[in-house]
């Protein structure tokens, strides 16, 4: 198995802030790989380094076998990028945006024309090809950007938050579309996201990144299995009592959350829920609410960081602002 991307101890600092902290992993050829984490966790910084837009402070990486430090042009030719923020020329038509890109990547005019035709067909924008991008909806713009990213047949496609700000229907559509791309074209796709569901649905493997560090890396199924079965959340006025009463062998994990909720992991929760309620009742512990669900990546994130991704984002945003300030210098 050859690797599309190899990352060795990659680190990026902005003054005192360590945006990406000594990360190492490999991405296989042809896989859809997800970088999952809250805003400000270092996902975009990692992508910026892999796409040679930003120099690493230390460490190294190769993309498609080419070194990101010594062979910038080689890397740039091997990759397509869809940035987090829109990067189309709104005054130009869909076709012209594609054509500009094709010329920048020095595609011959007949190859260029043929591929633009194909790709616009693929993203279902063919009948809008001569319309100015200004008139396009968010989803259409996203699809056009993906088509553009594929125009020079990159070995690796980076998608930075590809469905951010899109409505659920468009998001679903785009997911199907990305999965199809990977299957039919064998292209390696690396996407960053802070949507758990997106990572779960799309990715062969997911790296969970928080505060610049990789805290877990595996298939979504393995990650979810790793937390020990189903998840039961109990809300009670006395969480400590809940924890002490439920110290029983068939519960693989029990944790008191910062907000007074108690999270329990166990196999076959449906069968045990009545026992749990009985145990708590017999000890005169009030239950405000109880819920059972199959584990999600959100639970995985919670089990690794002790926080939900939304709370992490509150921290992360402060980092982001600092990071953006530094990028401006």
């Amino acid at each position: 198995m050859t690797f599309a991307i190899q990352i060795n101890h990659l680190t990026r600092k902005f003054n005192d802030l360590v945006a990406v902290n000594d990360i190492s992993f490999e991405i296989n050829e042809g896989e859809i790989f997800g970088l999952l984490g809250p805003n400000g966790a270092g996902k975009t910084t990692t992508l910026a380094m892999l796409s040679t837009m930003l120099k690493p402070t230390s460490g190294s990486a190769t993309v498609n076998g080419m070194d990101i430090k010594n062979n910038e042009d080689g890397v740039r030719k091997s990759i397509g990028i869809v940035f987090q923020d829109q990067s189309l020329d709104e005054e130009l038509t869909a076709w012209e945006n594609m054509d500009f890109h094709g010329r920048l990547y020095r595609l011959q005019s007949d190859v260029r024309r043929q591929r633009i035709e194909e790709l616009l067909e693929l993203v279902e924008l063919k009948d809008r090809k001569d319309d100015i991008v200004k008139t396009f909806s968010g989803g259409m713009r996203r699809r056009l950007e993906i088509a553009r990213g594929l125009l020079h047949h990159p070995a690796v496609l980076f998608l930075d938050e590809p469905t951010l700000g899109l409505d659920p229907q468009t998001r679903n559509h785009l997911w199907q579309y990305i999965a199809k791309l990977s299957k039919e074209h064998g292209i390696t796709i690396i996407l960053t996201t802070h949507y758990m569901e997106e990572a779960d649905r799309l990715c062969n493997r997911v790296a969970i990144i928080d505060h610049g560090k990789i805290i877990a890396l595996d298939t979504p199924a393995n990650l979810k299995d790793g937390i020990g079965g189903d998840v039961v959340n109990i809300r009670s006025p006395d969480p400590s009592a809940v924890v002490s009463v439920l110290e029983v062998p068939w519960i693989s994990r029990i944790e008191k959350q910062y907000d007074g909720q108690v999270t329990i992991s166990l196999q076959n929760a449906e069968q045990h829920v009545s026992t749990i309620v009985m145990l708590l009742n017999s000890n005169q512990i009030a239950i405000e609410s109880i819920s059972i669900h199959k584990p999600t990546l959100e639970d995985v994130f919670l089990s690794f960081t002790g926080k939900t991704i939304r709370e992490e984002e509150a921290d992360g945003k402060a980092n982001m602002r600092m990071y953006q300030k530094m990028m401006r210098r």
Binding site: M53, R76, K77, Q86, L88, D89, H101
Partner: peptide, 10 residues
């Protein structure tokens, strides 16, 4: 954002 598209090209 369009400048990025140009700057990341080879």
């Amino acid at each position: 954002g369009f400048l990025k598209e140009t700057l990341v090209a080879p």
